[in-house]
Simulated scan of single mutants.
Amino acid sequence: MAHIDLNSDLGESFGPWRMGDDAAMLDIVTSANIACGFHAGDPAGILATLRAAAARGVSIGAHVGYRDLVGFGRRNMNPSSAELVGDTIYQIGALQALAHVAGTKVRYVKPHGALYNTIAHDARQGADVIEAIRAVDPGLVVLALAGAPFVEQARSAGLAVVCEAFADRAYNADGSLVDRRLPGAVVHDPAEVAARMLKLVTDGTIVAVDGSEIALDAQSICIHGDTPASVEIARVLRAKLASQGVSLVPFATSHG
């Protein structure tokens, strides 16, 4: 039987500003990438999301990003290696402490936003993130963009890597994500998302914006928690996969 993990970016609300519906999404996904306070999230809200995830048996990952609250971590930055290593360690450590209090633990790391896209191809920043993860816990799994050079870079450094595809994002023919500033970068139709991801799980391919089919080796599917109608997209996707006999399993459990 085919199986896949569903992950979502959660814990992103800040004070009175609500971002997404964490409780509803946690009823659907199997892994949660929790904001660590640098691109989004405040300690009280992060703790509440961790407790909700723990109650549902959802696997926890540290969603580390640039120090960029105003830009939601989506602005390109070029911190020094010392800064990036330190910031990444700091974020993982903060989430580990909150997770411990919530009765769960951090099992993986997924860089967020601009940092995620930068390290996909920037070997220097990628090495900094790898160094930070190894310094904290070399047993942490890394969740990364399928097909990106960073995947082999992290594996060569001894880290376990799980590759993901994005349910609600359009792809270029080279396997990169379409820039969010361009029209059609985000896919909003739940039925279209479900059909695209079923094809990925069963055939290992996805249709790019130019109509070509690209191969993606992905063990997890990401649904952005801040996308409009994200909960509905996740529900329709989960139902579609289940109807075709695809089981949903958190990837981190298979890596200890």
Rank of each mutant, 00 (worst) to 15 (best):
D87P: 03
R124W: 09
P138N: 11
N117D: 15
Q125S: 05
T118L: 14
A120H: 14
T104V: 01
V85P: 04
D122E: 14
G139A: 05
D122N: 15
Q153H: 13
V70G: 00
V101S: 07
R134G: 03
L84P: 14
H100F: 01
A160P: 09
Q153Y: 05
A123N: 10
C163S: 15
L115D: 12
A148I: 10
L140S: 11
A144N: 11
A120W: 10
D87N: 10
V101E: 15
Q153I: 01
A146Q: 05
A127C: 08
A144F: 08
A132Q: 09
V70L: 14
V106P: 03
T118C: 12
C163N: 12
Q96D: 04
T118D: 15
A160L: 02
A123F: 03
L98W: 09
H100A: 14
R124G: 00
Q125V: 06
V161H: 01
L84H: 06
V141Q: 04
L143G: 04
F150V: 09
R155S: 10
I130H: 00
V162E: 11
Q153R: 14
Y108G: 09
A94F: 00
R74K: 15
L115W: 05
A99Y: 11
G158L: 02
I89C: 10
T104N: 07
R74H: 10
A123W: 08
L84G: 07
E164G: 03
L84M: 05
V162M: 03
P79F: 04
N117E: 14
V109N: 08
V85F: 02
V109H: 07
G139T: 04
G73I: 07
A144I: 10
G147D: 13
S156D: 13
A144T: 11
G103F: 02
A144W: 11
D122I: 09
A123S: 15
A144K: 08
V70R: 09
D122S: 11
C163D: 02
I133R: 00
G139E: 06
A94K: 00
M77C: 07
N78H: 13
N117K: 10
D137F: 03
H100E: 15
G126K: 10
K105F: 01
I89G: 02
A97W: 01
L159P: 12
L140A: 03
G147C: 04
L140W: 08
L159S: 06
R74D: 10
V141A: 06
P138S: 01
A123M: 05
A120E: 11
A82S: 13
V141W: 06
I92F: 07
M77V: 00
V70D: 15
A123P: 12
I133P: 04
V142D: 01
G73C: 08
Y90A: 01
Y90P: 02
L95A: 06
V85M: 05
A132K: 11
A127K: 11
V161Q: 01
A135L: 13
A135N: 11
D137Q: 09
G147T: 06
A102S: 12
R74Q: 11
A144C: 09
D137I: 08
